[in-house]
Design a binder for these strands. Sequence first.
DNA 1: GTGGTCTAGACCACC
DNA 2: GTGGTCTAGACCACG
Lengths: 124, 124, 124, 124
Amino acid sequence: MDIVISQSSDKPIYTQIYEQIAGQILCGQISSGERLPPIRAVSANLQVSVIPVKKAWEQLERDGYITTQIGRGTFVSGLGKKMLQEKRSGIAAKIIEDAVRDCRELGLSCKEIVAIVKSKFPQS
Amino acid sequence: MDIVISQSSDKPIYTQIYEQIAGQILCGQISSGERLPPIRAVSANLQVSVIPVKKAWEQLERDGYITTQIGRGTFVSGLGKKMLQEKRSGIAAKIIEDAVRDCRELGLSCKEIVAIVKSKFPQS
Amino acid sequence: MDIVISQSSDKPIYTQIYEQIAGQILCGQISSGERLPPIRAVSANLQVSVIPVKKAWEQLERDGYITTQIGRGTFVSGLGKKMLQEKRSGIAAKIIEDAVRDCRELGLSCKEIVAIVKSKFPQS
Amino acid sequence: MDIVISQSSDKPIYTQIYEQIAGQILCGQISSGERLPPIRAVSANLQVSVIPVKKAWEQLERDGYITTQIGRGTFVSGLGKKMLQEKRSGIAAKIIEDAVRDCRELGLSCKEIVAIVKSKFPQS
DNA sequence: GTGGTCTAGACCACC
DNA sequence: GTGGTCTAGACCACG
């Protein structure tokens, strides 16, 4: 469970935590059923207040990534591989959709966008 | 100069104004040297306070889109076509870069991303 | 952090605040990493509205003197001694450059200007 | 009577006009008794409104540089050489005084300031 | 009429 | 408690 916080980011701390944990769950870096460290430990580890960690945990639970068992800790939800894949696709589709819309408003064509995307990959 | 404000957007009002004006300048919808309406007129027009309009204007000036002349009004900067094209490319590259990075963190391959991009265009 | 506001000055309030804070940072009166008081406290302290204080803070941040962390406060940027010295020199050079240019336009020679400068120092 | 107006200057237009005319009178570029062109001509020449020219003229008259003779035009006041020299010195002293004060607040010594002044002259 | 600055409030997101 | 955003006024400098 490695998280990096940037105090100078435009994103709030709790969002940074949320996105990194969610990403690691979606990628399989953190497995189903695995136990997350207690909030206070994370907070101390990241050198941030407990509040943003708590908020991130709440949103992760709200979005079905984790489940809290009172008195026992928080655990990664038992999401099937198929469900993970679906969630990944949905999120990716939204990200790209937004980017494509913005680019089209700037007057870029499909070809141009695809060219830029490919240029971002080392071995195209 | 048509702007649409969404009070329910997650983006602050001044950002919405900024992005729409900047976009229209980049697309050539507003031409170099053209005079923008006075901030108070825009403010009344959009039914918002003067503050967010002024803040948008300030950022547009900071980013070189417009220049304001006290007592006379604000005017679109004399950006050459080449400069506009460069600015457009730079902004588009940044948008796509961010989106691609996020998608790669989710484990998507270049092919998959390109496929989604193409699917967002009517006649690909 | 002592600031003096003159309501009768030709300079706007936010500029007065900006210059005094920046000066104190450049002189080392306020140290790197130190936390500035909250803008509302400064505003109450100086008996001015929050607006000019906030504007001063914004410009201080724009110029790299401070960094603000939402929800935590604003802190003096970690500028090295060397950087501070460079900034000081740059600003001083600009001030003198302007003054010398104006004086030369009035027809003063180098000697005359130097003489006046020296006369401004108690024990030259 | 050559004046250059910068629309992007931080100084208002009427001040730019004032300073340039006053400077030329102080330097003897415009002689005592000489007639200034009519306001409308200057305004057309500089491509600015009549208002800032009028305001500059008012301040020049207020400060004793010119005198308006109704129906005949405006003329450079008959200032003796000694008076011109005194005015020049006074203005120069004030400019340098301000610059020196600002530099001292930045912690510069007399020597350092003099060194910078000298560096601004081609043949020191 | 134009922008520049300011006041005295308010509500919200974040820590 | 901290800064971020906004409202609805006001007065002033500038052209």
